[in-house]
Design a protein around this nucleic acid. Structure first.
Lengths: 337, 337
DNA sequence: TGCATCTGCTAAATGCTTTTAGCAGGGGGA
DNA sequence: TCCCCCTGCTAAAAGCATTTAGCAGATGCA
């Protein structure tokens, strides 16, 4: 069980060459002058011994660890944004890197610890991921490796990966229009006047902005704008129920799928059919959206793509922020045009 | 930006002592004979220089990396079992370890690569996590660090962490009985006769076994057992609809929350009230369960606890499997007794 | 005074790989 | 013949921390 590790020296000895030669051959150096015979012998020896390099020793010498730190507030923790990790993991694997994941709960003390733990391990780069897109607190430690902000921004690190919410907002409105719905639309989750002083996140602000711009340029206005701070199913349910008592909308533009879920419940209770009586569009492409009947058409948060992109940017030393486009997931909650 | 790292030698120099002394003091060795004065000087020097040990160098010498590998098939990837990671991450952090997460999609080639990547980095232990509890394939490589199976089992590694499904099954039945429901119960998701030759997983088999044992010892029988292989909302919906055409059950025991979700939809369409017309109990405590109205009472999968437990066992060199109890999450889908 | 023991500390080896500097021998050109 | 260059390879240093073995001086005891 506790066999000694086989080291490069063992390989070299078996091959009858120096460790220098073995190292050069196994790391695939290009400009070496070692003979084909030497190559063959070293590879054979390595294979027969089952040699695996000691990454710690290599890291010590080269200062490269093929390790990426993924530091997030709640991403791993919450099923909601886990697509970010999934994409990052996949891209890291393709680039033959490995990912250290650290969760901080958004607490500064833990953020410092996480970053220190990562830096101590000579990570080749760090990704700061936020569950909800926002200005992220980054501990004030010297970081001398590439850094990218995922689903968040930081004044200190310019390269970030965010969903293109503005266009997403526009698309939601476009979907309604394409379905022939021009009025009787209720916006569920936000009321510009009531929430005037409040700020959710830059990303959500973009979503609003895209929606409003598209509405305006199409000459459309909302029948009502229903505000609530938390976007949970129960709020969607209550707000929709209340709305139904005053005027039945032709469509509901929901600011996320959980609100839409609540709206479905209220609509169902009222005996209203989706999409014929009232249509819905929403945002996020939460798992829920596909469970609903009929399925909810929604502008998806491209978490997985974003995660991928983050490690790609990290590894390519990019230096500009990137917006990734939100996919339109058409299901059955809008009438066919 | 690219300042040289400060090394132990720098600290020692500033403190006017040897690196030996600095090392001993900073690692907090117990039986050293260094003076209080020396301790103070070294700590002061380390603090003023912002010294951080080079983990690679330390790992090289000590063969300990304070790194745990979390190798899973689909856990990080799927929001479903992400609680496993969450718990593991939290426990690792408490134990001042850091977690490498690797995802394999259940593909042997990737599993080998993941394990090699982990072993190359001198991890102090590895956790093999499976999304669905099952006999897990573990690559046939020499592993000379503690290993625990999380939500799965392996003949090679005896220590595993599994949910106590048998008791969970019993509890679900007990809940029904406690609510005064003794008959008219349909089991949604499994039919013992029809699925005779089929095997889902040991864990699910335990769930069935617990249910049957409890039914039998209470002298109860099912009104019907509805079989379907995949436990998605749409199946729950269809099966429940069909059942409603022949006989209305007093209660539905759903094998997971997604099936229950589908059942709610069918019940709603039929104008039936939960829990007064028909009651439901289910398994998993999926996020969905709390969104339903009324909330779904369910026997939860204790993923987070399991994840925690896995790293605790790993770090304590345990050698026996462990069953973690499934919590009863009471919401509103059963009548109050 | 002489010897053993303790106190407080350090030199040097060690872990494994990468990389720099350079060696030995053969061939070509003058 | 002499010198230079090329080929194919290696010795040794470097990277940073931990750990073993042991040294110098002080103290205790007879």
């Amino acid at each position: 069980m506790t066999k000694k590790r086989v080291t490069l020296a063992d390989v070299a000895r078996l091959a009858g060459l120096s460790t220098t030669a073995a190292s050069m051959i196994l790391t695939g150096r290009p400009d070496t002058r070692l003979s084909a015979d030497a190559h063959a012998k070293v590879h054979a020896a390595a294979a027969s011994l089952g040699y695996r390099p000691n990454v710690a020793a290599r890291a010590l010498r080269t200062d490269k660890s093929r390790l990426i730190a993924f530091i997030s507030d709640y991403v791993a923790t919450t099923r909601f944004a886990s697509g970010l990790i999934r994409g990052a993991l996949a891209a890291a694997e393709e680039a033959k890197h490995v990912m250290l994941v650290l969760e901080t709960g958004g607490e500064p003390a833990r953020e410092i610890q996480a970053l220190e733990a990562a830096l101590d391990r000579q990570v080749d780069g760090v990704i700061f991921a936020a569950m909800r897109a926002r200005e992220v607190f980054v501990p004030d430690l010297p970081i001398n490796v590439p850094t990218v902000m995922l689903n968040g921004t930081s004044a200190r690190f310019p390269v970030s990966v965010l969903p293109d919410e503005y266009r997403g907002g526009e698309q939601a409105v476009a979907l309604l229009k394409a379905a022939g719905i021009n009025d009787g639309i209720v916006l569920l989750g936000h009321n510009a006047e009531q929430e005037a002083g409040l700020f959710r996140s830059e990303s959500i602000a973009q979503r609003f902005a895209g929606i409003r711009a598209a509405m305006q340029s199409a000459g459309m206005t909302f029948l009502a704008e229903l505000s609530c701070w938390n976007w949970e199913p129960s709020h969607g349910y209550e707000l929709t129920r209340k709305q139904l008592k005053t005027a039945r909308p032709r469509a509901i533009l929901c600011l996320n799928d959980r609100l839409a879920f609540g709206a479905y419940q209220a609509l169902g209770e009222a005996g209203l059919e989706v999409p014929d009586d009232v249509a819905l569009v929403s945002f996020d492409n939460d798992e829920l959206a596909s469970y609903l009947r009929p399925g909810l058409t929604t502008i998806g948060l491209p978490h997985e793509d974003m995660g991928r992109r983050a490690v790609e940017l990290l590894l390519s030393d990019a230096n500009a922020p990137e917006l990734v486009t939100m996919p339109i997931i058409e299901r059955g909650s809008l009438p066919r045009a």
